[in-house]
Amino acid sequence: MASGGAGGGSKSYSFKVVLLGEGCVGKTSLVLRYCENKFNDKHITTLQASFLTKKLNIGGKRVNLAIWDTAGQERFHALGPIYYRDSNGAILVYDITDEDSFQKVKNWVKELRKMLGNEICLCIVGNKIDLDKERHVAIQEAEGYAESVGAKHYHTSAKLNKGIEELFLDLCKRMIETAQADERAKGNGSNQAGTARRGVQIVDDEPQNAAAAGGGCCSSG
């Protein structure tokens, strides 16, 4: 869905990134630190931290990042697919002091790979490294797991502002690569209709086949 607004020579990309993670692993702090550079601050200007955008410029390519927070409570787990449909990237956050939250991440990875295949760039993020003394998830285990599912692993601390810029920058680069590979495979966006069509839908239908319907109805103008 990386809509390439091709114009004026330079490309611009729009990416949707979902943020997954259990209740108190620090998802909100992570994005607020990234988008507002603030942590537990009284002066946070934004009304909400559930949908945030960020504009980036990576190697001359403009990137519009839309970060979708998701409700992490167990009771909303089944709603996941509605959220992460059509997303280009997913950031899966766990708390390094909480073994359970890492198990949750594993569940999500399985689900994402099942629903979206390899098109989605996965980032597994161990947050709260400022609390390293209370670590309950071993570094080797986490990194090993990430590698085994084709994801990248990052260590961050929203409190100390560590590793967050790198995380998002890296993710953007990977998403651009995926989008470019995608374009090449599809032959210069001839099938844009197909990708642009898979809008938000509640019913779990097959993706509509846009190419078949054709656009004959309005070509007479």
Binding site: S14, S50, A66, R75, F76, I82, R197, G199, V200, I202
Partner: peptide, 30 residues
């Protein structure tokens, strides 16, 4: 359904409106 079928897709997918709409869909599903 009407919004899903007939809204301009660019708005539904990445924009802020799209996010809230998705949440509404989630709410109904829940």
């Amino acid at each position: 359904q009407y919004i899903t079928r007939f809204c301009n897709p660019s708005r539904l997918m990445t924009g802020e409106d799209g996010y809230y709409f998705t949440n509404l869909c989630c709410a109904v599903a829940f």
